[in-house]
Nucleic acid binder design. Sequence first.
DNA 1: GCACAAACTTAGGTAAGCCTAACTTTTTTT
DNA 2: AAAAAAAGTTAGGCTTACCTAAGTTTGTGC
Lengths: 146, 146
Amino acid sequence: MPARRKSRPALGRSTAVEDYLERILELINTKGYARVVDIATSLKISQASVTNMIQRLDAEGMLKYEKYRGLVLTTAGETLARNIARRHELLTEFLQLLGLDPRVIEHDVEGMEHHISPPTLRAIETLTSQLRRRPALLTKFSRAAA
Amino acid sequence: MPARRKSRPALGRSTAVEDYLERILELINTKGYARVVDIATSLKISQASVTNMIQRLDAEGMLKYEKYRGLVLTTAGETLARNIARRHELLTEFLQLLGLDPRVIEHDVEGMEHHISPPTLRAIETLTSQLRRRPALLTKFSRAAA
DNA sequence: GCACAAACTTAGGTAAGCCTAACTTTTTTT
DNA sequence: AAAAAAAGTTAGGCTTACCTAAGTTTGTGC
């Protein structure tokens, strides 16, 4: 399946691409590099699929890849990856404020993060900081859903 | 594409299935019936694709379909469709409170609605009613994003 | 430095969900 | 009621993103 979509994502910005870039940046930040095997394990997909996608991301200028060697994000790739990561964090924070179970948060954020446009993200960002400033509003959520 | 996904949706609950059911219920509610051609126009896909999906939904017990004739939602199908519709409305309401542009709202809701679990939905529901009760909190959003 | 293991790549294949083109059935028009 | 139009169906294809199996390259242990 997972094919599906009405409005095409901007060339080379499918949800799959976003997931890869996000994970690659995370690996680089934590381990200093991102190998095929790590990306594969981390995303729970085969190494073959990773190789394939990495070659595509190279062709699209998101990263520089040398066969059997390794990869580095380009400026464009890193910028994009950072934005994706920031969106992920913001959404996670927002749902955390609502007192949701960490597993539910992870699941939902992973699903919806690819569909939040910049204006919506900004609004949620503002809302999140408002809520943090008035914790009284959140009492209703404290013993919340799991 | 859209083929993608880590955790499989419960058999017969892909985002495509949800979109079809949602639209079918909407058509039934407004016109009294849902024909292939209307579903196709409304979802901006071909009639052939609709025929195909309807046969699948029939096989899965979501609706009763008679070739060349018409369809009716089963109890299961209608219940599911109502839940999907409610989730859509709730998310739309929430984003409306944040002052977002209607087109942005439509786009984002259509993308993310399929990925919101019940607990998260309940939390957003509670939050929405809190915000409605304290409009002061929303002043920051009034001249919001477009 | 050679053998083995781990990492990586290639080739070929699958499933979902969409498409177009061609055909069939139903409905409308006259 | 026959012809034309509209609706619906079938067949065959495409793309994305995944997979497995088999082969290649790199790295490790002795």
